[in-house]
Design a protein around this nucleic acid. Structure first.
Length: 551
DNA sequence: TCCATGATTGTTGTA
DNA sequence: TACAACAATCATGGA
């Protein structure tokens, strides 16, 4: 990116309905709507910095050049802070300035004769204000966010950021909104108009001024990366059925000017491989959302409310900018949430897979799909999710006993209520599972047992298999010992999960059990004393010949 | 380190 | 009516 003067935008393009993508890429980097380029700038080779920044948030197609705007020639005082990236003007119209590579041909700029009348439907777009809104960004940006807790940040940041990116004071934001609202009502910008300037909030990217905020400098990354604000594959660059005429126009334009079309890389929509969304088991716990996703979720609403016409792309860009500007502490706050969610997810996933294994063992026909790790919706009964996982950032994937639908759990419990108590106490249990039973545990021990069963089936799959075969107790014990010493291949499927879980939860769990699961054993004994009069767990394994698994 | 995947929300199109 | 695709962006995990 060099300092290309505005004169490098071909006036012939301006006069046509060519999409912005046909304008020189280097110019595109500015994301400035053509409509706000003053003809006098074009004529007199004024630097691009004189372009009004207030339109940065809009998506005005080229053809909506406002004559009156074009007619209005404002003089800008040079002491105003520079708003845009082009600080220096190099070269007179077609005079060879700014050329920094293949795309920087010189252009002869014929005089532009603006229409005398604005298109009536476009009159609303006329900007009554004559001032150029260049506010020194660096003056307040960095210190702006600090006083606020990160919970407050999204809204605060958004308002400030919008103001900053548009170089607008907050008080002028409504004008932008109004403008975009008008846009939306008159021209469906993003979806139906192929002649669309793909406006990106990441505009002020190449601001060489050190005074520019960190936000803007960070914002620039994307623009640089993409090489164009109208990235390949974006809707604005995607040829539409109505674009054939436009393409012809463009072709002729290219012929006329000798200009190469923008590189095919820029024009050609990136051939996205058809991504197939695999069917997901509705019972499968959803992955924990990333910190950024949490932030997005928190922020987008405020952005949308302040900028109702913002498309998802706009919102994404804004959120990204805000994320970049987000303080490390705030990010950490989100990351902590993510970490917590991840732990819960691992718990839920372990439980989920355990249920899958159990279920599929009882339904061997479907075991194949389990082993190929391709859970499908038909694998599980059409029950509601066994472990409801509300996507709340604060308490995602709550897995407490209260979180289990009792009916579902009982569906698994049934006759196996006593099944795995001792097995659980003997085997290594997941920390949180074997932690001190929650208060509700005594009310509903089967829940705990059931959960434990799931965990056990996860960690000691061979045991489950032997139980499932209703082997005599002696076999079960042998199987247990064997499994404890040498995990058979069947367990490998979960080994990573187990290790990951321990890594993630392990020592951090407040109720982390001792390896022997003594705690669990205690409550188990207590429960069994009441439940089965001690026959179940008091040493005799006789009671264990009850069905251990669903049969 | 790079790449694929999935997450965010809302709209649109299709089965 | 339900679901998939899509948009821009980032995080994450695996190769």
């Amino acid at each position: 990116m060099t300092n290309l003067p505005i004169s490098y935008i071909k006036p012939t393009v301006l006069m046509t309905n060519l999409p912005i993508s046909y304008i020189k890429p280097t110019v595109l980097m500015t994301n400035l709507p053509i409509s706000y380029i003053k003809p006098t700038v074009l004529m007199t080779n004024l630097p691009i910095r004189y372009i009004k920044p207030t339109v940065l948030m809009t998506n005005l197609p080229i053809r909506y050049i406002i004559p009156t705007e074009l007619m209005a020639v404002h003089t800008i005082s040079h002491h105003l802070p520079l708003c845009l990236s082009f600080q220096s003007y190099s070269g007179q119209g077609g005079g060879g300035g700014g050329g920094n590579g293949a795309g920087d041909e010189d252009y002869e700029i014929p005089p532009i004769t603006p229409p005398n009348h604005a298109e009536p439907s476009l009159l609303h777009l006329m900007d009554p204000e004559s001032g150029y809104l260049c506010h020194s960004l660096g003056a307040h940006h960095n210190g702006l966010l600090n006083p606020y807790s990160y919970q407050e940040l999204p809204a605060l940041m958004m308002s400030n950021m919008l103001a900053q990116e548009g170089h607008l004071p907050s008080s002028q934001m409504p004008s932008i909104q109004e403008m975009t609202r008008h846009d939306g009502s008159h021209y469906d910008l993003s979806r139906h108009n192929p002649h669309l300037i793909n406006m990106s909030p990441r505009i002020l990217s190449h601001q060489p001024m050190s005074a520019l905020s960190q936000l803007n400098s960070q914002v620039g990354r994307s623009a640089l990366t993409h090489g164009s604000p109208s990235p390949p594959g974006s809707k604005s660059a995607t040829p539409s059925p109505s674009s054939s005429t436009q393409e012809e126009e463009t072709d002729s334009h290219h012929k006329m000017t000798g200009e190469k079309r923008p590189s095919s890389e820029m024009m050609k929509p990136k051939t996205k491989p058809q991504k197939k969304k695999k069917k997901k088991d509705p019972n499968e716990p959803s992955k924990p959302v990333s910190a950024y996703a949490l932030f997005f979720r928190d922020t987008q609403a405020a952005i949308k409310s302040s900028n109702p016409n913002a498309t998802f792309g706009d919102v994404s860009k804004i959120v990204a900018s805000m994320w970049d500007s987000l303080g490390e502490e705030a990010k950490q706050g989100y990351k902590r949430k993510t970490e917590a969610a991840k732990k819960e997810y691992l718990k839920a996933l372990a439980t989920y897979r355990a249920t899958l294994v159990t279920k599929n063992y009882n339904d061997p026909v479907e075991t194949k799909s389990i082993q190929t790790n391709q859970p499908s919706s038909h694998m599980m009964p059409p029950n509601p999710p066994l472990y409801s996982v509300p996507p709340q950032p604060s308490s995602p994937y709550s897995l407490g006993p209260g979180g289990f639908p009792l009916s579902d759990m009982q569906g698994y419990a049934g006759a196996t209520r006593h099944a795995l108590s001792r097995t659980l106490s003997q085997s290594q249990m997941l920390p949180s599972i074997s932690a001190s039973p929650p208060s509700s545990f005594q009310i509903s021990p089967p829940l705990h047992q059931q959960l434990s069963m799931h965990q056990n089936s996860l960690l000691n799959q061979p045991i489950r298999m032997q139980h499932g075969q209703s082997q005599p107790i002696i076999s079960h014990q042998m199987g247990l010992q064997a499994s404890l010493h040498s995990p058979p291949p069947g367990q490998q499927g979960f080994s990573h999960l187990q290790s990951e879980y321990h890594k993630s939860v392990g020592s951090q769990s407040p109720g982390a059990p001792n390896p022997g699961g003594r705690q669990n054993h205690e409550w188990e004994s207590e429960y069994c004393d009441r439940e089965c009069g001690g026959n179940h767990c008091s040493g005799s394994m006789i009671a264990r010949d009850k069905p251990l698994y669903l049969t």
